[in-house]
Every structure is written in C-alpha cells, then in structure tokens.
C-alpha cells in the first residue's frame, strides 16, 4: 500500500511539475492580442489591442472611413483622433497591468465604437 501511495505521490509530483513548467512556459509566451470587428453602416471596422512584456499598442481600421483610437496603459494615455483613410496605432511602453483601449470608426453619417482590455 505504501509503495502504491509512494508511486501515486511520485506520479502526482511529476504531473504537477510538468503542469507547472507548462504553465510557466505558456504564461511566458502569452502576449494577449484582441481583434474585434464592429459594424459601421454597411462596412466593417477592425479594432486591435496588443500587449507584451515591453509595450501595449492599439489600432482602429476602417477602409475609406475615419478612425479614432485611445490607449491607456501604465498611467499614461495616448489618443489619435480624426484619422481619414489611415490606421492610427497608439503605443505606450511599460510592463505593468492591463491596457484598456477605445476605438471609434465612422463613415459618412454612420458611426460606431468599441472598447477592449488586454
């Protein structure tokens, strides 16, 4: 019985170590990116938010439209507004906490917005 318990304990220890290593590996390599499409009239705009160990970025894209983007990260704010036919991309360097983003796109009389957290 003791041998069986030792074997089970050993097995669980190995499993937990493997899980731990795998977890560490996945967290080390995990750089969150969120891409979200949102409808503006009869067009589709794309919001992208990204963060890694050194910086965060955010962008808004709408072909043939106007775009705004706001990025808040590490107590700083970068915003671009009223960009026509362009894909404004805001960047802040840092390595603390989450980044929140706001995206707005408009085309003609249509307008829509979305926000993301990475």
């Amino acid at each position: 019985m003791k041998k069986f318990q030792k074997a089970v304990a050993g097995f669980l220890a190995v499993v937990s170590m493997v899980t731990c290593v795998a977890g560490m590996r996945s967290s080390a390599a995990y750089y969150p990116t969120i891409t979200k499409n949102f409808i503006v009239g009869n067009s589709t705009a794309t919001a992208v938010a990204y963060r890694d160990s050194s910086h965060a970025t955010a962008s808004t894209k709408l072909s043939g439209g106007r775009c705004d983007v706001k990025l808040k990260y590490c107590g700083k704010t970068a915003s671009y507004s009223n960009y026509i036919n362009a894909t404004p991309t805001a960047m802040i360097n840092g390595s603390r906490g989450t980044a929140s983003t706001e995206h707005r796109a408009s085309k003609g009389s249509f307008s829509n917005s979305t926000s993301l957290v990475v």
Partner: peptide, 12 residues
C-alpha cells in the same frame, strides 16, 4: 504630463 493626443496629423 502623462498623455499624448494627436488629431489628424497624417500626410495623405
């Protein structure tokens, strides 16, 4: 002090 706000500064 802690923000940058850019408005339509792109060259087309």
């Amino acid at each position: 002090e802690n923000s940058i706000n850019a408005v339509a500064d792109q060259v087309t």
